[in-house]
Design a protein around this nucleic acid. Structure first.
Lengths: 415, 415
DNA sequence: CTATCTTGTTCGTTTATCGAACTAAATCGC
DNA sequence: GCGATTTAGTTCGATAAACGAACAAGATAG
């Protein structure tokens, strides 16, 4: 029951029906490929004639292609249809404090080439470096297909519509026009997004990132209401309601990382005290392992001197180090409080947890479950599925891919 | 950028364009009445011919009517159009612990007759009583128009689709089929909803409830992303994203009332400790005024013995009672923590605060603002507008009206 | 009284779905 | 081996919508 925005609506024209049905059909092919025209007609409860003309259009545009003939017990064998992914390329860029990743992939999420380099903290220097690498990648792999765009994820707040980075504390950026800068340098359409929001987008459109080599390409998890919680240097979330990422009025929705967990907890980079992030970031976990409950600023120093990383803590926990297990369990307890708030506030169908920390899921999960169950108002809410996503599946790069792929398949807006 | 749900989509048919444009037109009339056909054509960037046929259809259905001729500097005078509200009635029902309100109103929110009686806690008894009163009201006011449905708001969790009350602790209800029961008894379509969610719906469709006598009828606040926070016996919220109320996967979204504010705070009715509700409900404020930080169960006893109500505390605060002011300011501080969480999580364009407590807005507001500003990540978020809605404007009954009115004007779903 | 301007209607054109008829290609029964 | 049956895919006329131009109905200005 959505209200029509009388100041910014899209009315139906002669061609709106076609656009809507075309997009539905394209999505059905995407999620059920290989699939025949007759099957599509049945799923859409439409005559086969309409499917014929819609498919003809999509074939001419190169959005779908005809594969092999299917098998049936009786009757004429159907011509199976697939969405085109292989010869459509995407450049995915993940900018973080520690490093920047550049991935060339196809539309289905299949990896073609991955490069890593140390992040330049000057925006112009970084964009120059990126432009050089993008051009080189596309020249080298020109035979693989045509590049349809660049997706870029940033640890910070982004105005997705304008492609401007509003505030990225980890990079020290404020009000930087990233999209225009990179688009000029490369001549490609550029999409910029906050990292956890992009990770959520990847789960809408590409599904969980298990298929390393092949990349299922079709799919996207069927869940339409979920929250993606990213735990790394910072703690951020992507909120999805009704199959759409919630951006917020000032582009800062999903900042669950900076809700207060305790009134007197460690100081956070954001200036406040006791934030979820200050209790559960990788820095916080390491500091806790080393015997402190410190602010991230001091913790960063501490761990630079000690040289201990979260991955070390997780490895030690796996090896039976009780202090490491206790530190992680404590992180789990705090994170559980945060997740319970998400459950109360949004009652999602599922919560994805991403980050290095998922390597200790056996330690984490009981703590998370306990906190959620302690607070939940209904049994259904108490049993909200938690799904870990290991950092190794490159969720942020998948998010960057989704930034380019999603608009091609998204529902046309009407009303 | 919404994803199409390939398991539950609505494809475009021959008549979809018409439905979409018809609904856009209806909403334009609603928000700009009186308005001419030619103006509608300009706003929709469509030929006047299309408007003629759409309006003819709406006139025949009685959804709009022609009013007086408009004035123009030159040319033929336009025929002004209005939405029909006066002869379309709604029965709004607000069930609470202390009492039940039944309001007969028109589609624009104009009050016709209001009845109050003590709530029967047996569902069947309550429905019987309600049916008698509804029938009597409609018989008495039969001349005023035809009743298009019943809207009913409940303090608790509701499955809106099935009309079932899942859990209403204040009433002691669990799994009660309210809709079917009342629909059978009255022969009218019935809509049931959680009270704060309905209050949010009222703000989408009817706008803030200032116009007592007339009822602006047109309108609805233009804001499409906001949160309505209801503070009374309990504390609940209605979350609105993109002009649509967020229901959650298990119908329990918006339960910000039961997020933890403190780890060792008062026990809450929900079983947990330190909930926002336990700190900021009317009971909590009264208990605080009387010198305790108590669980609501004990507080209820206490205040029954003392006979003090929130309204008393608010009155005393207005009279200069420092203890009352301090108690309310403390409530404001805790509520501010809750609101700051809402700002972080959803970054709404606006937050509405409803309930008796708004009577002490001068005491409350500084505390709320301070807490939000202390936590907010951007200036825009820090300055999120807070809008008080006094309990006297009957927000819950307006919500019940909106339950019936909204579906008539809502955007048809496509894609 | 006429030129001009604006509103509202009418009607032929275009573009979509809808549905029935038709062709193509496979299996089954005999 | 061959027609009956079944399923896939195409074609084409009917219908319903937007689109756009022409036109009638009022109003004002000079």
């Amino acid at each position: 029951m959505r209200k029509i925005d009388t100041r910014d609506f899209r009315r139906a024209t002669r061609s709106t029906s076609r656009q809507v049905n075309r997009q539905i059909l394209l999505n059905l092919v995407r999620e059920h490929q290989p699939i025949s025209r007759a099957d599509l007609a049945r799923r859409m409860t439409v005559g086969r004639g309409v499917v014929t003309t819609l498919v003809k259009e999509l074939l001419e545009e190169g959005a779908v292609y005809e594969g092999a003939l299917g098998d049936l017990p009786r009757g004429r064998r159907p011509m199976m249809l697939h969405v085109a992914t292989r010869d459509r390329l995407v450049v995915a860029i993940d900018v973080r404090f520690s490093r920047t990743d550049v991935l060339l992939s196809d539309f289905g999420g299949k990896q073609i080439a991955l490069e890593r380099f140390g992040t330049r903290f000057g925006p112009d220097e970084l964009l120059d470096e990126l432009a050089i690498r993008v051009r080189r990648l596309l020249r080298t792999h020109a035979a693989e297909g045509r590049c349809e765009g660049i997706g870029m994820v940033i640890p910070g707040m982004v105005d997705r519509a304008s492609g401007r980075v509003l505030n990225a504390p980890q990079l020290g950026w404020r009000d930087v026009q990233v999209r225009a800068g990179l688009a000029e340098r490369t001549g490609l359409p550029v999409h910029v997004e906050n990292a956890p929001a992009a990770c959520a987008l990847a789960h809408i459109w590409l599904g969980p990132g298990e298929g390393e080599g092949e990349g299922r390409g079709n799919g996207g998890s069927g869940v339409r209401d979920f929250v993606y919680v990213s735990v790394s240097d910072g703690v951020g979330t992507g909120v999805v309601v009704n199959g759409e990422v919630v951006r917020g009025h000032g582009h800062t929705a999903g900042e669950f990382g900076h809700i207060p967990i305790s009134s007197d907890g460690p100081h956070c980079l954001c200036g406040a005290q006791g934030c979820l992030e200050a209790h559960t970031s990788n820095l916080a976990t390491v500091a806790r392992y080393l015997g402190h409950e410190l602010s991230p600023a001091i913790a960063r120093e501490l761990l630079q001197r000690s040289g201990v990383t979260v991955d070390d803590v997780i490895r030690h926990a796996g090896g039976g180090d009780e202090r490491a297990r206790a530190a992680l369990a404590e992180t789990g307890r705090y994170l559980g409080i945060g997740l319970s708030m998400i459950v109360q506030a949004l009652n999602p169908a599922q919560i994805f947890v991403g980050g290095e920390i998922t390597g200790a899921w056996d330690v984490l999960e009981p703590a998370l479950r306990a906190e959620i169950a302690r607070r939940a108002l209904t049994r259904r809410a108490a049993e909200t599925p938690l799904v870990p996503e290991p950092a190794g599946s490159l969720p942020r790069l998948r998010g960057a891919i989704a930034l380019v792929a999603a608009p091609v398949y998204a529902a046309p807006q009407v009303g």
